[in-house]
Amino acid sequence: MPLKDEKPRLFLEEFRVKNAPNDYGMADEKWSFKKFTKKFRIVIVRMDNFEMEFDLIGIQPAFANAFRRLMLSEVPSMAIEKVMIRNNTSIIQDEVLAHRLGLIPLKADPRLFEYRPEDATAGTEFDTLEFTMKVKCTVNKSQPKDSYRAEDLYENHSVYSSQMKWQPMGNQASVHKEADIGPVHPDILVSKMRPGHELDLSLVAVKGIGKDHAKFSPVATASYRLLPEVTLTREVRGSEATLLQSCFAPGVIGIDSEGRAYVRDARYDTCSRNVYRYDEIKDAVVLSRVRDHFIFNVESVGALQPNVIFVEAVKILRDKCKSFLDELNKFN
């Protein structure tokens, strides 16, 4: 079923996924930067400090995928890399504790720090953040009678991320505000203790990238999908319309006052092919996806805003190109 406009489409049929007959897969088109700029569009759908959704329209899948991969594994962020354990008498083992601490997201802006050189033995104020965590669990002397709740019986029986304390190095205290450095969430449970258990740790955070360890990744998720489209080819009404509606995600199919089904908004369709189970309505719909319309979803861990993460990712690719060009110009 050919649709009128020029968008390249993938058709989701009952037993196969098919390209449009006139579509050769965008692969044989000659490269032209002018053509790219003419077709390329970005639409921001939703954005706040932690999450954003935007569309990249008219772009090659290779670029979209490169941006996604860059956000996941090459945009830097700060995370705890070393834990010096002076005392740990809790039941959680040293290495498990260190790993848990490493995964705590930090608020520090990675753009204000440098990578620590590989051969460095000690950190400097430009590449390191130091925290301490000193917690001791004791019996609560003023405990209420008849209560057996751990919160009432003991003091400090739960250790939270808010209990790590920043120790500014050198000039750091005047460059950074304390509120911009610590953990993103104050209520991450690190360990549970009983009276007599004690933690005395110093934590060293450095800048790193997700390729090295996932804790350095600035995004919780960064993904894209293709824009779904649902087209009705004939009138569907009455009980068939309700059946059709139930085959799609809520909000995709609407039913008007005369009981006729219409496509309200296919954007958030799950692209399940449930309709094809019903013989009476399976001839009424064409399911497709637009092959050059990428819906990106970026969810930040908290250090950087999602829009900043995307720009940083593209900048990394650009700088890579620049440095390779410099090197190739010196070739031969």
Partner: peptide, 15 residues
């Protein structure tokens, strides 16, 4: 590389 760099620049500008 030059073209890829241009694509990146353009993407950043538009975004």
């Amino acid at each position: 590389f030059q073209d890829l760099e241009k694509v990146c620049e353009h993407t950043i500008d538009v975004f």
